[in-house]
Amino acid sequence: MAWPKGTPRPEGAGRKKGTPNKITADIKALAQEHGATAITILATILTTAESDQAKIAAAKELLDRGYGKAMQGVELTGKEGGPVVIAASDLDEKL
């Protein structure tokens, strides 16, 4: 049941912390049954496809699964591209 925004939920409502979501756990288990086949198919596409685009897509998928997705850099700047300045008063407000 969806609760209206800003409305507190009754105590004890929802799943307890750490309890796995049964629906997504079932889907994940089903997908994992086909993992080896999917990897084999991707490897076959990588080595036999005529299209460079298909080879690149297969290679990317294999690398993402084998080594994790590449980290993306994030650059943070302050006002007008300057350094980020944190005042002590800003920290006091958050605490």
Rank of each mutant, 00 (worst) to 15 (best):
E33F: 08
E33S: 09
H34I: 13
G35Q: 14
G35K: 12
A36T: 10
A36K: 10
A36P: 04
A36I: 09
A36N: 07
A36D: 07
T37V: 13
T37I: 12
T37Q: 12
A38M: 06
A38L: 10
I39Q: 05
I39V: 12
I39C: 06
I39M: 08
I39E: 08
T40H: 11
T40V: 11
T40S: 10
I41C: 11
I41K: 12
L42G: 02
T44P: 01
T44H: 05
T44N: 08
T44D: 11
I45Y: 00
L46Y: 09
L46N: 06
T47M: 08
T48I: 03
A49P: 00
E50D: 15
E50A: 14
E50Q: 13
E50W: 11
E50G: 14
E50K: 12
S51K: 03
D52A: 04
D52S: 06
D52C: 01
Q53R: 12
Q53K: 13
Q53D: 12
A54N: 06
A54Q: 05
A54E: 08
K55L: 01
K55A: 01
K55R: 08
I56S: 14
I56Q: 13
A57M: 15
A57K: 14
A58V: 00
A58T: 00
A58F: 01
A58P: 00
K60N: 08
E61C: 07
E61P: 08
L62Y: 06
L62Q: 03
L63H: 07
D64V: 03
D64G: 06
D64L: 06
R65A: 13
R65F: 07
R65W: 11
G66A: 14
G66I: 08
Y67G: 08
Y67N: 05
G68H: 04
K69M: 14
